[in-house]
Simulated assay, not measured.
Amino acid sequence: MKILKVLNNNAVVFKEGGVEKIAMGPGIAFQKGKNDLINAAKVEKVFVMKEEQEKFQELLKNLPEEHIQVAEEIISYAEQQLSATLSHHVHIALSDHLSFAVERIARGISIQNKLLNEIKSLYQPEYAIGVWALQHIKKRLDITMPVDEAGYIALHIHTAKLNSPGMQQLMMNTTIINEMVTIIKKELNTEIDENSMSYQRLLTHLRFALNRLAQNEPFHEMDEEMLDVLKVKYKKSYQCAETIKQFVKDEYEINFPEAELGYITLHICRIEQRI
């Protein structure tokens, strides 16, 4: 394989089968230029990104090499922990995010992640990777990042998983869940133990409900008699579920089916009983 273009010491462009590809590896392009041979033993990753190829090349040329390398190490660790190959887009998104975050912190600018508690609960494996990433960044770059960044890294990792919703959809769903939880706290007039199993189950249920709506998947039915019993026996919880339904309809044009109110009522009821 011959080098078509050197992007930085650790990345080159080459052509194979008439297709331009990017090869990455430590020192793969050190003291090399166009038409030099690539040392196959140094190649760790090869990318073909189609319409995003140019953007990735620009990032590789313009971002600090150590930021890109650390991002790649985080991605490799994530793939190992999740036993999955992440989408190629994460190499652009995470490298760009990490470099920008480092720049912000160097300027003393910190951004609070208002969805951190929901991210911790909804995406636990990815959040654990985010926490590891902060420790790795400290070790490799000697930069201490706030725990809020673990949440942002977790979202990038989650959206890179196969069949996961895009970042925009993911952020919107997480925001909606945060707002629904706020309504529950207000209606029950209490704080909620975010480490409790009841809370974890509620968040998981709401996440899957929003995903089903986004993908036009059918909801589980509930017997009408059972629903009528819930309305009477757990009146406060059901009214809270109705408030949530009206809120998401008014704010996001999301329509939960009647049966779904029954399931949400049961989750709210568990939290209320625990209180």
Score class of each variant (00 low, 15 high):
63 L>H: 11
126 E>T: 12
177 I>A: 04
54 E>C: 02
114 K>Y: 05
222 M>K: 06
249 K>G: 09
204 T>L: 11
215 Q>Y: 12
134 L>T: 06
250 D>I: 04
166 G>T: 12
246 Q>S: 03
112 Q>M: 12
242 E>L: 12
158 H>C: 01
199 Y>M: 10
3 I>S: 11
133 A>W: 06
52 E>F: 05
199 Y>N: 01
109 I>C: 01
7 L>P: 00
222 M>T: 08
225 E>P: 07
11 A>L: 05
173 N>R: 15
191 E>T: 15
107 R>K: 15
191 E>N: 11
49 M>V: 06
198 S>P: 01
215 Q>P: 00
116 L>E: 10
22 I>M: 04
243 T>Y: 05
164 S>E: 14
12 V>E: 05
74 I>D: 07
249 K>W: 07
39 N>H: 05
70 V>Q: 02
138 K>N: 15
176 I>R: 04
104 R>C: 06
227 L>G: 07
111 I>R: 12
23 A>P: 07
168 Q>N: 09
133 A>Y: 04
228 D>W: 02
181 V>G: 02
77 Y>S: 03
91 H>F: 01
56 F>G: 04
49 M>H: 03
46 V>T: 14
33 G>M: 00
171 M>P: 07
131 V>N: 12
86 L>P: 07
211 N>F: 01
129 I>K: 06
70 V>N: 03
106 A>V: 10
250 D>H: 08
104 R>F: 08
56 F>Y: 14
164 S>Q: 14
51 E>C: 01
22 I>V: 13
153 I>H: 03
8 N>D: 12
75 I>P: 09
22 I>H: 01
216 N>E: 10
258 E>C: 08
60 L>Y: 00
54 E>R: 14
